[in-house]
Amino acid sequence: MPLPPTIPFIGITWADALFLLLGGVVLGSATLVVLGRDIIRNGLMLILTLGALAGIYVVLGASIVAGAQVLVYIGAISVLILFAIMLTQSKSASAQLNFQTQALPAALASALIGILLAVALGATQWGSTVYNDTPDPAGTATAAAVLFGPWLLAFEVASVLILAAVIGGIYLAMKPAESEEIEA
């Protein structure tokens, strides 16, 4: 007999169950990223969050987005974050928050965002927007046709933004001329 379309006794489909599981992992690990005291574990939890998010993309049928997510956000950006933490922190340092003086602004900002999110989530008809059946993974051709067709302008704007960010990063990292001469 084939597997039943829904999980026995609970009555939700397997894809929904997987989505719920991955969503739970995303929420739980994201909470730990913010609440944890050990900064390197927070970084690792961020990796877990992004990985579970990639899993959600796969469940929703966007495997190319998932691949890019793992390649870029986990393989490069999170590793760079960990790298920066390892270069600057010491494991024997205190785990206390020494310079935390922004509790009130943070609470205000998060309350504002929370209200915004609640309004936006409540006002949207999710049943009509959610893509119901998983599309057949047709490879890169469909994604490329959409990305370089109707969304070409957005794509180019994003690449210009990233170029600006790269130039800005190089400018910030550039040493002043006199210190360069001293070092040489």
């Binding site: 690792l44 990796i47 495997s63 190319i64 691949g67 890019a68 793992v70 390649l71 986990i74 393989g75 490069a76 999170s78 590793v79 960990l82 993974p137 490879g139 890169t140």
Partner: peptide
Amino acid sequence: LGLLYFFAIGGLGVV
């Protein structure tokens, strides 16, 4: 997406 998968998962080892 085998090649993309390969590079993506292969990059996890460094974590």
